[in-house]
Computed example of a mutant assay.
Amino acid sequence: MDTLGALALATGPPTDQLMRKHPVGRREPLITNIMWRNVIAQALFQVIVLLTLTFKGNDILKLKHYKTGRADLVRNTVIFNAFVFCQIFNEFNSRKPDQKNIFEGLLSSHLFIGIISITLVLQVLIVEFAGKIASTTPLDWEKWIVCIVIGFISWPLAAIAKFIPVPEKPFLDYCYCSPRKSTSGHGSSSHRKAEVD
């Protein structure tokens, strides 16, 4: 699923806005502050949802009348399915990490739509028909709607997160673990001179 998602995002044609951006230096971080903001927002949401389903899922999904083993299997299938739908919906957010309108140019990206469609079909097949292989069980329509709604929340959450300002300074520079070193001013020249001496 991650491979298909990466392929869907990597094959998108370059936009005019992307081509107008300044080149990124070799020493610039691969993950920008905007990406960190989006990743943290989605990760927090998914962790909260998945932990809630793990510990309270039987009550929330009304599985008390099921046998214990069956209830756990249904709950785990919902957790798996909800997680995958979170990733599918978040792929749309990842197309435009710094823009409010994540659907701009979507219809012209046929490969992206095709890969998302294949992912959805595979997910339905895995949940409904690959129980022995994937340890899943078929879900009724109500639980499918629950999974889709959980995934859908990724869209408004991403829109809200984009109102959170991010600093210019790279995120990793705020912690001591950053491998980046200053290369400007007298400090770097003095450091190089000291190494030569």
Rank of each mutant, 00 (worst) to 15 (best):
N76M: 08
V78M: 00
A130G: 11
A43K: 15
V124G: 02
E91D: 15
A43N: 13
N38R: 06
K143E: 05
Q123G: 08
K100G: 06
A130M: 13
E128P: 02
N93H: 05
L30F: 11
T119M: 09
I88C: 09
Q87V: 09
V84N: 07
D72C: 01
S109H: 12
V74Y: 14
N81A: 04
G57L: 01
S94P: 11
N38E: 06
V124T: 12
I60P: 04
N38G: 14
S108D: 10
G105C: 15
F112L: 02
V121E: 04
Q87N: 08
T68K: 15
F45P: 04
D72E: 05
L106T: 02
V47E: 12
E142W: 14
N81M: 06
S94W: 15
V78F: 00
H65S: 06
A41S: 07
L106I: 01
P29W: 01
L139E: 11
K56V: 12
G105S: 10
D72A: 10
E28C: 07
L30M: 06
H110I: 06
N90P: 08
I34V: 12
I34S: 06
I34F: 04
I60V: 13
F129P: 00
F45V: 04
L120S: 05
G69A: 14
F85P: 01
L139G: 05
F45M: 08
L111T: 13
T52P: 08
I34M: 11
D98C: 01
L73H: 08
P138Y: 08
K143C: 05
F92T: 02
E142N: 13
V78P: 01
G105E: 12
L125W: 15
K56Q: 14
I40Q: 04
T54I: 00
S135V: 10
N90F: 11
N93W: 13
V124D: 01
T32I: 03
Q46Y: 09
S108N: 12
R27Y: 07
I79H: 03
I116W: 13
H110V: 05
S94K: 15
L111R: 11
I48N: 05
F80N: 05
F85Y: 10
M35I: 04
Q42F: 07
R75N: 13
F92H: 02
Y66W: 09
N76A: 03
Y66G: 01
I60C: 05
V121L: 05
F103H: 00
F80E: 09
N101Y: 06
I48Q: 09
W141F: 07
R95F: 14
E28L: 03
N101P: 04
V47R: 13
T32C: 00
E91P: 02
V78A: 00
T32E: 01
S117M: 02
D98E: 15
E142G: 14
G57C: 02
F103N: 02
N101A: 06
V39C: 12
Q42N: 10
I48A: 14
N38Q: 10
R95H: 12
F92M: 07
E128L: 07
V124M: 07
W36H: 07
Q123S: 08
R95Y: 14
K64M: 02
F89C: 08
S109N: 14
G57S: 00
I115G: 02
E142S: 08
I40A: 12
P29Q: 04
V124I: 15
Q123N: 11
I113P: 15
